[in-house]
Nucleic acid binder design. Structure first.
Length: 501
RNA sequence: GGUCGGAUGGCCGAGUGGCUAGGCUCAGCUCUGCAAAAGCUGCUACAGCGGUUCGAAUCCGCUUUCGACCUCCA
């Protein structure tokens, strides 16, 4: 555990606060996971990449983190796009829609997506269906304490009573009176004492497939209780960080606070972190807007809005180039710019690893200003991460290192202009920030040795041709390889490097 | 309607009361058989109108405008 100056913007206080963990050296991190009734889309990529970097940075600081991210696999949901046909025939629904099958399918797809983004796995990934007992227990406690009431086999949380005794709406800036005036027609509205009350348990109608026995009859848990029950179980009554999308602030997170406060006697979370939305044409990407681009579509380019396929690392980079609390607008131009930028960063990074070390003897080649500049750029990386995970600034600084690295490689800067200390700092900083903290990976898979052998042969043949000034042959080799996505680059010293698209 | 948050150069996007990120694009140059890559140079913006200040894109007010949440939503 190294001393640090990490500041986190806490949605609860709306201020950047210096981060300290409840238990020294340990951090409890809970992030709202996906509802697996449909395929994950680009919008989902944002929180999981954001909090992956949070996790990575906390670990980098030396914390032992327990990262819990749930899978919402219970509740009243139907498979995307199925609703229409299911309505036609209830029988079709029973035959086609086995809940576990659907949940399994989309959970697997989600995991695959997370893996492609190089997100670290959560330490615990609890499912709602696996914690029915815990949820029922918690609801019973809430009833015992007089803050929840059963009606017709459902149970609701009494928000008005809660608000009378505890601060309600702090997280989302909500005023209870406003909530009470809601005119919207909601399911079960007539059962509630107040419109602001929310369901803890819902009675299952006969046709509802997902159902569990409870003290109130057969039903299923409401949509806020799982996070409270599961975070309590794995992180304790009070834990350090709870994360999720901004759209969850209300009512989901506000309800979590209310439930847990009654059940445990105190607020559950010390730091709330919320990421902003990904927009498309200025509008939030979401099911209700019908403007989602699924991850599989993004990776294959198979979507009317996509001009091409985008590599998962390009998407990751694109997301990290913006601060997590800003909206991020999708466009092909932006993704394509990210693709080129990432490629440039990565090529410089590869070069860095091969960069000759300065010999370190006292010499006149040392460039003091350059050394100072590199030191500053590298040391600032930590400052930027400490400033509420400002990955945008981290990337900006990493890009400032690129021309320096390329210039040393290209001979414009003498390798001995760097002191050994600066050289080491550079060699240590870039991998730590690029790979360990930002979690970026090479876009091309590791080449197997056979391709390398073949290319070596072609490059030799081409070198011979060039020596004979047989440019027709040398250009043909280069062009044919290019057509296959292999690019040859002639360096000044006659060496040839290559890259695969 | 209520609450909250934005409006930055050709595009995407950081950001602090004064020293004006970064990426992409574009133009020129260097290198080069050519190409690609790379390097160098150039392109100086902060919605509008007031105000505070020696000084504001950054603070305050108003206007215009976009969005998020208030309903499942990352």
């Amino acid at each position: 555990m190294q001393p640090h100056q990490l500041k986190i913007y806490n949605s609860l206080t709306r201020e950047k606060e210096h981060f300290t963990s409840l238990v020294p050296g340990h951090v409890g991190l809970y992030v709202c996971g996906p509802t697996v009734s449909g395929e994950s889309h680009l919008g989902h990529a944002r929180p999981y990449i954001t909090f992956d970097v949070v996790l990575r940075y906390l670990q980098h600081l030396g914390y032992k983190v327990r990262y819990v991210r749930n899978i919402t696999d219970a509740g009243h949901f139907e498979e995307e796009g199925r609703e229409a046909e299911d309505k036609v025939s209830q029988k079709a629904l029973l035959e086609k829609l086995e809940p576990m099958e659907m949940v399994h399918k989309y959970t697997s797809l989600f995991h695959k997506g997370m893996q492609m983004f190089n997100n670290l796995e959560p330490h615990i990934e609890p499912t709602a269906t696996g914690h029915i007992v815990e949820q029922i227990n918690m609801i019973e406690t809430l009833i015992e304490r007089g803050y929840a009431y059963p009606v017709n086999g459902s149970v609701y949380f009494d928000v008005a009573k809660y608000a009378a005794a505890y601060p309600y709406g702090t997280l989302s800036g909500r005023v209870l009176e406003d909530q009470l005036e809601t005119t919207r027609e909601l399911d079960g509205q007539d059962e509630k004492r107040n419109k602001a009350d929310f369901a803890l348990w819902k009675n299952a109608p006969p046709e509802h497939i997902m159902r569990w026995k409870s003290p109130w009859g057969e039903g299923f848990p409401g949509w806020h209780i799982e996070c409270s029950a599961m975070s309590r179980k794995y992180l304790g009554e009070v834990f350090d960080i709870h994360g999720g999308g901004m759209d969850l602030q209300f009512p989901h997170h506000e309800s979590e606070i209310a439930q847990s406060t009654i059940a445990h006697g105190h607020a559950p979370v010390r730091y709330w972190i919320h990421n902003n939305m990904i927009t498309i044409n200025g509008k939030k990407m979401g099911k209700s807007y019908n403007n989602v681009i699924k991850l599989s579509e993004l990776f294959t380019g198979n979507h009317p809005l996509l001009q091409q396929a985008y590599h998962p690392m390009v998407v990751r980079f694109y997301i990290l180039q913006t601060h997590y609390r800003s909206t991020l607008d999708f466009s092909n131009e932006a993704l394509q710019a990210s693709e080129r930028a990432l490629k440039r960063l990565w090529e410089a990074y590869i070069l860095l690893k091969k960069l000759p070390a300065p010999h370190g003897e006292a010499n006149t080649a040392v460039n003091e200003a350059l050394n100072l500049q590199i030191r500053n750029i590298c040391l600032e990386l930590t400052d930027f991460m400490n400033d509420d995970f400002n990955t945008a600034k981290v990337l900006a600084n990493l890009f400032e290192l690129c021309p320096i690295i390329n210039s040393i490689n290209g001979g414009q800067i003498d390798p001995n202009a760097l002191t050994p200390a600066t050289y080491s700092l550079l060699q240590e900083s870039m991998p730590v920030f690029i790979e360990d903290i930002l979690g970026l990976q090479p876009m091309q898979a590791a080449n197997n040795g056979k391709l390398e052998d073949v290319l070596k042969l072609l490059i030799e043949i081409r070198a011979d041709a060039k020596k004979r000034k047989d440019f027709a042959t040398s250009d043909t080799i280069r062009q044919r390889l290019e057509a296959s996505g292999i690019f040859l680059k002639d360096a000044k010293d006659g060496s040839v490097s290559w890259s695969v698209e």
